[in-house]
Design a protein around this nucleic acid. Structure first.
Lengths: 125, 125, 125, 125
DNA sequence: GTGGTCTAGACCACT
DNA sequence: GTGGTCTAGACCACA
């Protein structure tokens, strides 16, 4: 199971927050292959958002072969969910670090400051 | 002076990329107080993007008192450009680290991987 | 007798897969007029799917006069099972070929590729 | 450019028909890399369907790296649009042929009948 | 002008 | 009950 949380102030669209949390849930082992996700309706009620927004998030993950849906049955973590090609993974890591550094530096933060803050936050969880 | 580069694939809007690069230019000392920036027109031609996009970026930095526009003369780095309140700075640092960690984790990257990559990238420049 | 197989990934609904396999069983001579089909209950257990799904498939074939259900006895291949009006048959052939071509082309397959693959597969059985 | 057509009777969802037609347009050379697609609004008016339906189709193709969208600018055929891994392509060909044969046979059509019909239809276009 | 997101609500298809 | 599709309409963000 997994506890979803939405932050309306973040500027990140709801459906993307859901996608990120599911991806993180899988990567961190909270969600396991074959596990059923909350139904679109249940999650819509829980998060107090529209049903279509949940559908959109699930759909995108299905296209990416991370989720599998069976109409009339439910939505499940797909078997390929864990597999991320090493190549693609490294490229992605490089990408997001690059962008993050750019932003951090634009505020004048040094590499040390940033890493300290990350260690602080990272240690908590 | 400063060399602007735009990446259409990054998902970061053009005007924000420009803002980030100017802020970074100042923080890193490439841009100094009083220095003149390219005219909107010149930059629009150079980056092959719409004039309004540049205007929007300059305007937002002007609101933040980082740039100063003199009618008919041009746009300059303002005197307050370097000053960022300590309080605001820490909050910002926390914010961007928080979001970055969330994203990194959604791809399954560990804190160590991320920090290593950052050190690698950070050392180069 | 006939061995049913369901493919959840195909996108084709279960009840339709069952219908197709029964129709194919008849057309290929594996199922003969008067033969008894598995009970809905038995088939539901065997395929590990809901009882209603089997019922739906049988019911649709009953409407098409391909199956006959005798209360308390079971479901059988009806005597009209083999008869398909020539007109309807040609229209159907045209329909399914049309749709198949559209799909094949959307993936960039040429007519030759498709026909070769079909001959390959068709020869096996 | 490309001429879109929707068939409400086909049972195939609108957004999927659009996806198929774009894929086919690319595969057949009617749509070339970098070409701009109709705006979501324009296409919605042209096809007399809701704007969201077009958005959905474009979005799915964007996730598949077939289209690229720049907010405020438009939607374009992406550079990777033509590249389909040979492996994946063959698997797909096998898949769709398999399913097609199954259906064709369930109606009692022989391999010859089917191939003749396909040649007939395929020759026209 | 472009696309992006979200809502409310409807109806359909499948299990 | 499950998910799938579509509409009408709104408001936002970007160029």
């Amino acid at each position: 199971m997994i506890q979803f949380k939405l932050d309306p102030k973040s500027g990140v669209p709801f459906y993307r927050q859901i996608i990120d949390q599911i991806r993180y849930g899988i990567a961190s082992g909270q969600l396991t292959v074959g596990e059923q996700l909350p139904t679109v309706r249940a999650l819509a009620v829980e998060l107090k958002i529209n049903l279509n927004t949940i559908t959109k998030a699930y759909k995108e993950l299905e296209i990416q072969s991370i989720l599998e849906t069976q109409q009339g049955t439910g939505t499940f973590i797909g078997p390929k969910a864990v597999v991320i090609p090493e190549k693609e993974k490294n490229a992605k890591l490089s990408d997001i670090c690059q962008e993050f550094l750019m932003i951090a530096r634009s505020y004048g933060f040094s590499l040390e400051e940033v890493i300290n803050e990350l260690k602080l936050k990272g240690g908590k969880q």
